[in-house]
Design a protein around this nucleic acid. Sequence first.
DNA 1: ATCTCCTCCTTAATCCATTAAGAGCTTAAT
DNA 2: ATTAAGCTCTTAATGGATTAAGGAGGAGAT
Lengths: 349, 349
Amino acid sequence: MARVTLQTIADRLGVSRATVSYAFSRPDQLSDGLRRRIMEVADELGYGGPNPTARSLRLGRAGALGLLFSETLPYAFADPYAIGFFQGIATAAEDAGVGLLILPLPHGDRRSDTVRDAVVDAFCVVSLPDGHPALAEVFARKVPVVVVDEPYVPGHPFLGIDEPAAGALAARHLLDLGHRRIGVAMVGLHDDGHTGWAGVDRQHGSVFEAMRRRRSGYQQACEEAGLDWGDVPFFEVARNSREAGRKAGHALLGREPRPTAILTNTDVLALGVLDAAADLGLAVPADLSVVGFSDSAAEEAGLTTIRQAKQQIGEAAGRLLLSPPSDAPERTIFPHDLIVRGSTAPPPA
Amino acid sequence: MARVTLQTIADRLGVSRATVSYAFSRPDQLSDGLRRRIMEVADELGYGGPNPTARSLRLGRAGALGLLFSETLPYAFADPYAIGFFQGIATAAEDAGVGLLILPLPHGDRRSDTVRDAVVDAFCVVSLPDGHPALAEVFARKVPVVVVDEPYVPGHPFLGIDEPAAGALAARHLLDLGHRRIGVAMVGLHDDGHTGWAGVDRQHGSVFEAMRRRRSGYQQACEEAGLDWGDVPFFEVARNSREAGRKAGHALLGREPRPTAILTNTDVLALGVLDAAADLGLAVPADLSVVGFSDSAAEEAGLTTIRQAKQQIGEAAGRLLLSPPSDAPERTIFPHDLIVRGSTAPPPA
DNA sequence: ATCTCCTCCTTAATCCATTAAGAGCTTAAT
DNA sequence: ATTAAGCTCTTAATGGATTAAGGAGGAGAT
């Protein structure tokens, strides 16, 4: 069973390849009879239609948007923030009738050519650590690229929020409520799988720009309120999971004196902290206040959080790539809001 | 700024195109000096590397798996069952170093050629209604296809669970607890956006095979327990959302006599029913038992549900497509389990 | 000086289609 | 009868690469 191409059909019928092509792509160019016969033969031979790759080559468009996400694929799908973003970019892709090619990142030492070989018209890169090799590979492709959240690369379109301001907003909310013993739990500072206490050096050395800046917002707000940042217990986890959040919660709540409030940089982590509080019999918000981030999994749990327009960002990223306006600003900063729910209150008296 | 190809670089250096190709794909075939010069010129000219489409054409592989899901993209990403499945297939894709091309389904009347033009090596089709045009388009491509959940197409690999058995298991759980006044809330029976009571005819006319069979399991179990299915109130909703579940819950719980248990065909719907129960001040499980389906959003809510190996199914689908075993059975049926949590109990006395 | 073996590069076939321009024939209009 | 206009189909250029097989030149062996 050899390969069936336009030519096979053409030969079978004694017509030219062009004619067969027209039968598929411009039926009006052909007489009805011939067209029908072509279709019959195509069917008979088991022809799968014009080869999309060849078509794509000829037409110069791939019909797909490449998506690169910092995490492994299975994990990315588990992240509510990523999901929100996907929904947004999927909306744009759907409108334009193009697909979304989700690419696995070269993981571990295994070298892979997915970026080099991806048949896409443009790339959207989300949340890559500083200097990640995939970033260079993407730029080497010389196709349009937008970066979302991190890292900001001068000269290339960037979409995200004002991280320091958002971080400060979250922290200030707790400070304004009167909290002075604040703990911080963060994920996504490093790429090395470390879970445990993180000193100031390690905090500053974070390879994820957005998280680094978010954290700096926490710090700034705390210092403005007169806290000594060196005294703020800071627990870092390797994975953005509820279980990791719980672990962080236990670590932080085990300190003496116990924090009256915990800042987390994701909602999922915050949920885990709530679990830890429940484990310890602490009432939220009476005994402990908790703030999440991104409003991706916060509503049902009544979590106070910072809302990020993730869907809107995703959609904007898609549109930017699919119909590049000539005057796109290099950085587009989206709004964020403090959403106060039931997980925060003044500290216990 | 004209297009830069291998040839451009070759001409610039007075070497053949093949040489330049080797510089990129088989560096060992070239002297170091020439290779370096080629790379320099490539850089200088802004060459983006060998065109992936052309490469793909020549090599005869696309490096991507096509994924078709019944819902619109933004919605699919919101569905916990779909997410679980994505995670599974993403695992397989990642292992094989291929991408996942998520395709928008032709939506509404807008005709689109996404399936015809998708540059993929194989397709995975998930949960399409009977006779959906996309299915025919996929088969017309003559590439490997697996169908997950529905519809079963004889002669093509199929992955899913034993729907009637799973449905019956859920229903029997309630019946065994002693419930006799059972209500049913289902989503995904039809494609027409209808929300409201559904009679037996409409139930049987469902265009989603898996849901139809799942429902038949409910019915069979009820009839075996001596219930008259015609008396079982059956509410159908158009969207798999918590809000829709709440609506269904209110409808069902507003009946006289009030059901003591409600079967739902998704966890999300079940959560909505719990909301409705809360609205009405009904205690779960004391006053009302609720059963979900698929164990995709059930754990935290303490929902009794049927666990479906969605990740496992996704992964199996991916592997089946990426390295087709010669002896794959036509249907692969995955296990399901009843997970009893706190949302079910004997009916009130 | 001749033969052999490498190394490095070129030739040319191949992957599969799209589409502008033109050729041949029929039909209608003048 | 002649010409213009329409249909229908063909020609040929084009998109951008990969790779087996072969040729040219230099180095080493005899």
